[in-house]
Amino acid sequence: MTLWQRPRLRINSLRSFLSLFLASTFLSLALAACGGGNQNTTNNTNNGNSTATKKQDVEITLVSFAVTKTAHEAIIPKFVEKWKQEQGQNVTFKQSYGGSGSQTRAVIDGLEADIVHLALSGDTEKIQKAGLIEPGWEKDVPNNGIVSKSVAAIITRTGNPKGIKTWSDLVTKDIKLITADPKTSGVAKWNFLALWNSVIKSGGDDAKATEFVANVYKNVPILTKDAREATDAFAKQGQGDALINYENEVLLAQQKGEKVDYVIPDVNISIDNPVAVVDKNVDKHGNREVAEAFVKYLFTPEAQQEFVKLGFRPVDETVAQSKEVTDKFPKVKTLSTIQDFGGWSEVDKKFFSDGGIFDQIQLKNKK
């Protein structure tokens, strides 16, 4: 090999090295560029997700007993507007109203209620026992779940021609009384208990209470399905001389311009109406947040004022002490609660189960 050939070898080697170096550098830059491109794509995706997390419209199904319809129709728009302003989410409500007992069975049988507002805690407990509501539901909201309440009223014909003043007057033979069937209506259960309670709180025992209530029901020409039908039978169809119904129904009728004569007996019962979220259904529908928010909203002074406007006695103490409320609702001297009867489980078993006292009274009266 000649001397001049060695430098050429080195030059070739250097050229090879430089080529490899430049290629490697170019590849590194290309990879870096690709890496930067992937990062931008991730950021864009995150930005897209941020937009996608905007809350979608949600639907709530409210199932309630008949006489609450007007109250909820006033309250729901207020909640919808408030939720839209605070959460930026549209909420629509599907509503179902009917007898509390019938509504309870409908929910158990498949009506997918997200919220139930029923005439009595016993109906809510039945839905719980069916596995749709978790135990302890009454502890998740204020006031043990009782969101509206009233007392029993005796509605008479204009001028009260029969001179009805208290429960004992309803056994007079020439008086026809209209009330709903406690087998299908929660309101009617309260009516029955108001009659029964009037004897017990006056010193009578179960035997005297049974006799008195049986004599009252002898004067009932028809048992309607729910409180609304009872009111229609009395007011629109002209049946009967007296009607037992919620005080709030009377006050609502008066607000509509109807002339209604009525009596609030001094011995009465607190008609307590619970509200609850139906756990199984809200989890299925993915709307628990809104459902729970609506239930809690019902306890606010704003919502309670709407109940008051429609004749319900408020559960919020601030509202209850207002002059509007004290002027509107007469005081009741002796006011019992469902707990005085041992709770709804005991009440249903004793009075309204198959073969219970109500069935015994009906059977006796048919003879």
Rank of each mutant, 00 (worst) to 15 (best):
T156V: 10
V141L: 12
V171G: 00
G136K: 08
G163D: 03
H72T: 04
I133L: 10
G110N: 06
D114S: 00
F93K: 04
L111Q: 15
T166E: 14
E125Q: 06
L120N: 15
A71W: 06
A106Y: 14
V107Q: 04
I164L: 09
E125R: 04
I155N: 14
K126N: 07
L118D: 06
N90G: 10
A74I: 01
G110P: 00
K149D: 11
W137H: 06
P135A: 08
S168M: 11
E112Y: 13
V107K: 05
Q89L: 02
T156L: 13
F79K: 05
A74S: 06
H117R: 05
A71T: 08
K82G: 10
T172S: 09
T172F: 14
V91D: 01
L120I: 15
D123L: 11
S121I: 07
I76P: 12
G88M: 00
V116Y: 14
V151T: 10
G159I: 00
Q128K: 15
K162M: 14
Q89D: 03
G122L: 15
G122C: 12
V107R: 04
L132P: 00
E125G: 05
T156R: 14
T172Y: 12
Q95N: 15
V171P: 08
I154P: 13
A153P: 07
K82I: 07
I127C: 11
K82Y: 10
L120P: 15
S121A: 08
K139E: 10
N144L: 13
K78R: 12
N143G: 07
I164S: 07
V116H: 09
I133H: 11
T124C: 07
H72L: 11
A113M: 03
P142Q: 01
I146W: 05
A119F: 04
N160H: 01
I146C: 04
F93D: 02
Q87K: 13
G98V: 10
G101T: 00
E73C: 09
I115T: 04
W167Y: 05
H117C: 01
L120T: 15
G145R: 04
D123Y: 06
Q89H: 01
K139S: 12
